[in-house]
């Protein structure tokens, strides 16, 4: 029963995000979650993903209770602020228990017991993940990052011109690639990318 209520609330949440296109609503949900995670990260929280999930739990609860929500993202921002304040008042409630998170425990154990091995593993994962990028993408990353502080702006501007895009577009493109690479390395180090 509780599950069906949650499912119902979730469907309502998706409808609030985009009533006409369920797929777009799903993408909006993921995007909102990503923004909430970063909100908690930028507030210096150690468990931003958990806190973002807490926001959604509360949103779903309110929707389930029949609360009328006009602007769901603004509402989420307000809830996020409350959740943040609560997490500061009572960090123990929100702190991720390493015992309940075997993956985190695994990482911690690996890194504290074998710091060199953890570094080597990261390096191996970086190699592996870079290997999933095509040659053109690798060349783009190399051209973007293999520069120095004196000539960085000029180099990147020339690179953008050669790709017929604006410098800002190039910056965003590289940021997305770096984010993809970072996620791949993180998954690989956690063992889920293998």
């Amino acid at each position: 029963m509780a599950d069906s209520v949650s499912q119902n609330s979730f469907e309502k949440l998706l409808a609030l995000l985009d009533a006409s296109d369920r797929e777009a609503a799903g993408a909006s949900y993921e995007a909102l979650r990503a923004r909430l995670v970063r909100f908690f990260e930028w507030r210096g929280c150690e468990t931003p993903e958990e806190l973002a999930d807490t926001v959604f739990d509360r949103l779903l609860k309110k929707i389930g209770e029949g609360e009328e929500i006009q602007n769901v993202t603004a509402y989420a921002a307000t809830v996020a602020r409350f959740v943040f304040k609560e997490s500061r008042r009572n960090p123990a409630v929100f702190a991720e228990s390493i015992d309940e998170n075997p993956a985190a425990a695994g990482i911690a154990a690996r890194e504290t017991a074998e710091p060199d091995a953890a570094g080597d593993r990261r390096f191996t994962c970086l190699e592996k993940c870079l290997g999933t990028f095509d040659a053109e993408t690798r060349r783009l990353l190399i051209a973007y990052y293999d520069t120095d502080e004196r000539t960085m702006i000029a180099t990147r501007k020339r690179l953008a011109e050669s790709l017929a895009v604006s410098l800002n577009t190039l910056r965003i493109r590289v940021c997305r690639l770096k984010s993809r690479l970072e996620g791949c390395v993180r998954d690989c180090c956690n063992g889920s990318g293998e």
Partner: peptide
Amino acid sequence: PPANVNAENI
């Protein structure tokens, strides 16, 4: 590194 990678030689 020295900055000798540029758009032309990517």
